[in-house]
Nucleic acid binder design. Structure first.
Length: 231
DNA sequence: CCAGACGTTGTT
DNA sequence: GTCTGG
DNA sequence: CCAGACGTTGTT
DNA sequence: GTCTGG
């Protein structure tokens, strides 16, 4: 799955990677500090497309709270349990279906963390964190969904997940769904059809480096570049 | 029909 | 809002 | 995801 | 043990 990640790329690099012009970067996104340990309920950077007042589609860099709050929720606290959505089932889940149809987004990341539980070990055995990154340092674009909630238009997001395979499966059986640049336009287009969206959900994982890191990353309060140092 | 849930992960 | 369970 | 709290009343 | 918060 994906419950913790790093997003520390400079604003300029990120805007270049996602082809976002300066007027389409909102103030929150400009001010959001780099993070080596983004956790659920925190603000994260988000790329989305929507029509402006003239009906022009704009690609925006904004922020959202991680943990999707469905539009019908009475209490936004439910969002803390909606940090991931299964790509296999999101289309039929009341919590995610409308967002999958109309409110898709991308969440940039430089690395993510997975915790390995050793098979057959005692329940209290600490799990071991691993970092996953692109070998060439390319940015990850996690496939996400967003929702706008309540009188204050709280924007929240969830990260789609898929089955892990290969080397990654030895660490954990789920992974975030990562989309390559060639898929970004189609994913973000609010008018994209269900079949096209379904095809994108089947995107294979890109090749990655996977290595153990120190247990400091366990605490959501830790946040420094050293969290990505090999253990 | 109305009431109540609406999620993922992992563990047993 | 929409689906499932009673 | 992991860490940390987990409760009420009343008093200062 | 289970829920909430980050």
């Amino acid at each position: 799955m994906c419950g913790r990640y790093a997003d520390f790329r400079t604003l300029q690099d990120l805007a270049d990677a996602f082809v976002i012009t300066p007027e389409n970067i909102d103030a929150e996104a400009r001010g959001l500090p780099a993070s080596w340990n983004s956790a659920p309920t925190q603000r994260v950077r988000m790329v989305a497309e929507r029509a402006d007042d003239q009906g022009e589609i704009r690609r925006l860099l904004a922020t959202a709270r991680w943990g999707l709050v469905p539009s019908w929720a009475k209490d936004p606290a439910v969002g803390s349990r909606m940090i991931n959505a299964r790509s296999e089932t999101a289309a039929t889940k009341p919590s995610f279906a409308s967002a999958l149809a109309r409110r898709r987004c991308l969440l940039p990341a430089d690395a993510y963390y997975e915790w390995q539980r050793t098979p057959g070990s005692a329940a209290r055995t600490p799990r071991v964190p691993f970092a996953i990154r692109r070998a060439g340092g390319e940015v990850f674009a996690f496939a996400g969904l967003y929702e706008v909630w309540g009188p204050e238009d709280l924007v929240t997001v969830t990260i789609l997940t898929a089955a892990a395979s290969g080397e990654l499966a030895a660490v954990h059986d789920r992974r975030p769904l990562v989309l390559p640049p060639s898929a970004w336009d189609r994913w973000l287009d609010p008018a994209g059809g269900a079949q096209e969206v379904a095809d994108l959900l089947a995107m294979p994982a890109p090749p990655c480096e996977i290595y153990e890191v120190g247990s400091q990353v366990n605490s959501p309060r830790e946040n420094s570049a050293g969290l990505l140092d090999p253990a």
